[in-house]
Amino acid sequence: MNLKKHLPNFITLLNLLCGCIAIVMVANLKFDLAFYFVSLGIFFDFFDGFFARKFNVAGPLGVQLDSLADMVTSGVVPGFVMYCLLTSGNYSTNFVLPYLGFIITLGACYRLANFNIDTRQSDSFIGLPTPANTLFIMSLPLVLDTFAGPFIQNTWFLLIITAVSAYVMNAEIPLFSLKIKNFSFQKYKLQIGFLVVSLIMIATLQFLAVPLIIVTYVLLSVVNNILAKK
């Protein structure tokens, strides 16, 4: 049996396993462990494609497995987290409102399906990638636990985050690629600067850095697009 051929798909399945474990952690309100398992799943999600390209074994099966695994790790899990946050919000007695958190799951599903047929996103992204959006959502309960932010406890704020999250994943917003293929500062100064700022944020702000990094990434991309047009 050719192990190289099956290694990328095995790594993809590890991503799926991490997503399944994260669901269990969220159900038990262990948001910190859910965050770590989702982060591990996203790590596997990066390396399945890396090894598929390295061993030249990329194929349609891998593409489908990747999307199905991402649907759990970066689709179901963040939607479930938002559902849990909404059940503890100001209007937690409302039966319908918490289920609106799964709009994130629907948005992720649409983006993943569209990504598979969009040939424009080979080197960069159009719309926020589902893993980045997932890290943003997964960090919210940890920020709440650490900083007790009043906004994160507000139901309407959470619903706005939900709607914006689903929209940004599918918006026609080009986002700059984070791939640095050589050490040319002049060519990759935006990427290098962003990575340096991100590391400083993580070192100083810990979990609060995660949503700030994602927001910074989107805003920098918008500014970069405007400057590029000029």
Rank of each mutant, 00 (worst) to 15 (best):
C18G: 08
Q206S: 14
L159E: 01
N225V: 02
L97P: 14
Y36E: 05
C20L: 10
L68S: 01
T119E: 12
G89H: 10
A166I: 01
K181G: 08
L61E: 08
K189C: 06
F176V: 06
R111I: 02
I180H: 15
K189T: 04
H6S: 10
D118C: 11
D70A: 01
A171L: 03
F44E: 10
F102P: 05
I226S: 13
M82L: 13
I160A: 07
M201L: 15
F185W: 13
R53C: 12
F44R: 11
A203G: 06
A27Y: 05
P150N: 10
R111E: 04
N94M: 10
P78F: 00
I180A: 15
Y91I: 09
A163I: 09
N94D: 12
F44D: 08
C18S: 09
L3Y: 14
F47N: 05
T155Y: 01
K230T: 00
A171V: 00
L195Q: 11
F46T: 02
L178V: 06
A113R: 08
F50Q: 13
V223A: 13
N56V: 01
T155M: 00
D70L: 03
K187D: 07
G49M: 03
T216S: 15
N224V: 05
K189R: 09
I213N: 15
I213Y: 11
G89N: 11
N28C: 08
V76E: 01
D123Q: 13
A22I: 00
P174G: 02
L175W: 02
N90L: 14
F80R: 03
V222T: 06
P129Y: 05
P60S: 08
V143L: 11
I23G: 07
F147K: 15
G49C: 02
L33W: 00
A22E: 03
N170G: 05
M201V: 07
K187I: 10
L106C: 09
F102L: 15
T12K: 11
L61G: 05
I180G: 14
